[in-house]
Amino acid sequence: MNERINESLSALMDGETDELEVRRILNQLEQDDELRGTWQRYQMMGSLMRGEPAAAVDLSRGIMQALDGEPMDEVSRPQPLAANGHKLRWLASGAVAASVTLAVLVGVRMNSAEPDALVAEQQTLQPAAVQLASAPVQTLSETDAAQLEAAQRKLQEYVLQHTEQATMSGSRAAIPFARVVDFQQPAEGGK
């Protein structure tokens, strides 16, 4: 029995299982701690074999969602509870805040002149002008292009200032502390 499950797990990792079998295994995983341990080891081994960093990510929920046709990036909206007179006072203490700053600063750095390593990536981006403008911009004189770039830089600076400030004033304690780390993308595209 156990042997068969192990085989199924292995097949699942290799993507060689049919849907019914997958559902059966995932149901078993829900109920059996030992089996779940095995599953995680398999995942980790798989990651290592593919040369990925092995992190203890549980894929089972994602697989189940996919099987059920539930889009992974959408969640159902629950009925909110009626307010019962209690005031929920949010203590804007900046708990997450300081951490966010770190990430923001990391992102900021990417705006400065960057090595050529990123050139290949830049080429796949849309032209800066098209990215930037809400209305299509057909042809740009050199002056216009320079102005546009200046405007884009200014905008980036404002975004960073906003994020940094929001962080420091601790007004958004619920935000992830990695926000704006990927902000370098438009900066690179703007070069």
């Binding site: 005031k87 949010w90 804007a92 203490s93 400030q165 007004s171």
Partner: peptide, 11 residues
């Protein structure tokens, strides 16, 4: 910008 932390009613 100079920030101020405030206690907010979010409910």
């Amino acid at each position: 910008l100079h920030g101020f932390s405030r206690v907010m009613d979010v409910e």
